[in-house]
């Protein structure tokens, strides 16, 4: 009886684990099944590099959306990454204990706030500001980049901070013992040693920015056109799905799933990269 229970419990845990991973397989299969026929019909090259998205006429080119995703993500990284890394250094090295005790929950709250709330704030606060002071419609790459920069901060900050805190204390102490100032020690010893963790945090932050949908729908303007300046409205891969999925049918719906495939592949590459970077670090430690 006891042996039976023992075996049964082991089996159950195995089955549960198996179900968890089969979910990933299921997602992959269903999105592929639904999306690949259209890619096959249009041709991968025309689908990805096609400049015209006109589902009504049967034209499915997503290059403007790819350009949109890349430019907004890039903008978010340019704004968010330096601030995020500075914050992680602040938390790990400079902040007095009482301050970091307040600061960490604040970052957590930042991560928990619904993305639609960020989008809304962008819509009523950031967009008018850009329109009034910089010109253009306000709904723009810049607005999207600012909102996304805020949204990737928790990812960048928490993972960078963890990788800085994980360093052996002797690293910094050794540097200080050599007569370096605190900042010199951070700059020449701490940051290079924590590099892989920081890079991974940036990569994961970029993954988050690429994948965000609702917040950017609200601030990007969603025009399907190649942008010429950061004040132009654009549409990203995610917003393309989010906006049109509600009413799409037939080939149009398939095309949105095909957009999903592209997004899925990009995210898998980004995540694989992040996992690869951190794995390297672990090997080096041992």
């Amino acid at each position: 009886m006891k042996d039976f229970k023992e075996k049964l419990s082991g089996r159950i845990f195995f089955v549960l684990a198996l179900s968890s991973i089969s979910v990933l397989a299921l997602i992959t299969v269903f999105i592929l099944i639904k999306g690949t026929p259209l890619i096959a019909e249009v041709g991968l090259k025309d689908f990805i590099f096609g400049m015209t998205w006109a589902p009504g006429r049967g034209e499915f080119g997503i290059f403007p959306m790819i350009a949109g995703s890349v430019s907004v993500t890039f903008g978010a990284a340019v704004i968010g990454v330096p601030i995020g890394i500075c914050c992680s250094i602040f938390l790990a090295e400079f902040a007095p204990a009482w301050l970091s005790k307040i600061f960490r929950p604040v970052i957590q709250l930042l991560a928990g706030i619904p993305s639609v709330v960020y989008g809304f704030w962008g819509m009523i606060f950031v967009v008018p500001l850009i329109r009034d002071y910089l010109g253009g419609p306000g709904l723009s790459i810049l607005a999207g980049s600012i909102i996304l920069a805020i949204m990737i901060l928790p990812t960048v900050i928490s993972i960078s901070e963890v990788s800085i805190l994980a360093l052996p204390r002797q690293y910094k102490e050794g540097a200080l013992a050599l007569g370096m100032t605190h900042w010199q020690a951070i700059y020449s010893v701490v940051l290079p040693s924590a590099k892989s963790g920081i890079v991974a945090s940036v990569v994961l932050g970029i993954g988050r920015a690429v994948g965000e949908t609702m917040a950017v729908i609200m601030v990007l303007g969603n025009a399907v056109a190649l942008p010429e300046s950061i004040l132009d409205p654009v549409r990203t891969l995610t917003t393309n799905i989010g906006i049109e999925m509600g009413y799409a049918e037939g080939a149009h719906e398939q095309a949105l799933f095909a957009t999903g495939i592209v997004l899925f592949v990009v995210i898998m590459i980004i995540n694989g990269l992040a996992q690869y970077i951190t794995r390297d670090k672990n090997k080096g430690r041992r």
Partner: peptide, 28 residues
């Protein structure tokens, strides 16, 4: 190997954008 596959899947699932979950949920 099984552990590695499970962990890889879990980490990959964590990064998938919610809109892709939406697509999957819709179709499935």
């Amino acid at each position: 190997a099984i552990t590695k596959i499970i962990r890889f899947s879990a980490e990959s699932l964590a990064g998938i954008p919610s809109i892709v979950y939406g697509l999957f949920g819709f179709i499935f």
